[in-house]
């Protein structure tokens, strides 16, 4: 749909907040978060999907033919609404939440001590990537989605159901939002109504420099931004280390100047004459 969904961060936030009982109290009481883990994971993923599908049904479906910049504004407005509804229900203050704290304890792994969560995060990410890759390349739904991304009208002529494909992509992104919510909450142990915004800023930039609409591109972009951040953190002289993020964004601008359509170019995203 070529939608830059700024509300995606709020999908993550909402999924995370579903873990606790809806009150404005300062301390968080576990709600779904208190369930046994297989049930919890399923519930949160389902919740992320439900939110994404609901926003598709109520908002984006009605704007199928809108210009990209209108869609962007709408997705921002939607995120703004969700964020403020969350604040109304849960209060604006960040809340501490201890979910699966055993995962954050350090363990010995091949001679280095790291929190167990890190290999878990890496493992989950890899697994999801492979799953998405498989879904996109091998299943008929995935192939329909890729066809629709390439040429929407042509895909429809060939019998791809537009509503279904778009709903499917929303469901998928909601599911991933649920995963991110879980990983993020376990790692930071914090809930805040604005937590989604920071995640999305970096994700957005990573996607774009990697090459929009390309899965390998998104992965590559994410890695590049991460590596650039870590390297700058390690090797910048002390006096200017505080400006690390500014350098990261400078790097992004430079990269864009060299390759305006991202590292991995897709034909359908190039500007045509």
């Amino acid at each position: 749909m070529r939608l830059i969904n700024f509300a995606h961060g709020e999908f993550v936030t909402v999924s995370a907040y579903a873990l606790i009982v809806p009150t404005a109290d300062v301390t968080a009481k576990l709600f779904i978060g208190g369930w046994s883990w297989p049930l919890l994971i399923l519930a949160i993923l389902a919740f992320g999907m439900a939110i994404a599908l609901l926003s598709n049904l109520l908002v984006f479906r009605r704007l199928r033919n809108a210009a990209p910049q209108n869609l962007m504004v709408v997705s921002f407005a939607l995120g703004y609404i969700i964020q403020n509804l969350l604040m109304m229900v849960y209060g604006a203050r960040p809340k501490a939440i201890g979910l699966w704290s055993s995962l954050t304890q350090a363990t010995e792994l091949g001679g280095i001590r790291i929190p167990l969560l890190q290999p878990v995060t890496i493992g989950v990410t890899l697994l999801l990537l492979l799953a998405i890759l498989f879904f996109m390349r091998k299943t008929s739904f995935g192939i329909q989605m890729r066809a629709a991304a390439e040429d929407f009208r042509m895909a429809r002529y060939l019998g791809v159901r537009a509503d279904f494909v778009i709903a499917l992509s929303f469901a998928l992104s909601g599911l991933l939002a649920g995963v991110v919510a879980l990983l993020y909450v376990v790692q930071t142990g914090l809930l805040a109504p604005t937590m989604g915004v920071n995640i999305v800023t970096f994700a957005f930039i990573a996607t774009v420099i990697g090459g929009m609409g390309s899965l390998p591109g998104a992965v590559l972009g994410g890695l590049l931004v991460g590596i650039a951040t870590s390297l700058l953190q390690a090797y910048l002289p002390d006096s200017i280390r505080a400006f690390r993020d500014a350098f990261v964004f400078l790097f992004v601008i430079l990269l864009l100047l060299v390759r305006p359509s991202g590292i991995i170019r897709l034909k359908q995203f190039e500007e045509r004459v």
């Binding site: 800023t201 930039i205 774009v208 964004f249 400078l250 992004v252 601008i253 864009l256 100047l257 305006p260």
Partner: peptide, 16 residues
């Protein structure tokens, strides 16, 4: 730059 790339670059400028 032009088009989307220019928009994203302005975004990076803001963040930077």
């Amino acid at each position: 730059l032009s088009g989307t790339a220019a928009s994203i670059a302005t975004f990076a400028f803001l963040a930077g």
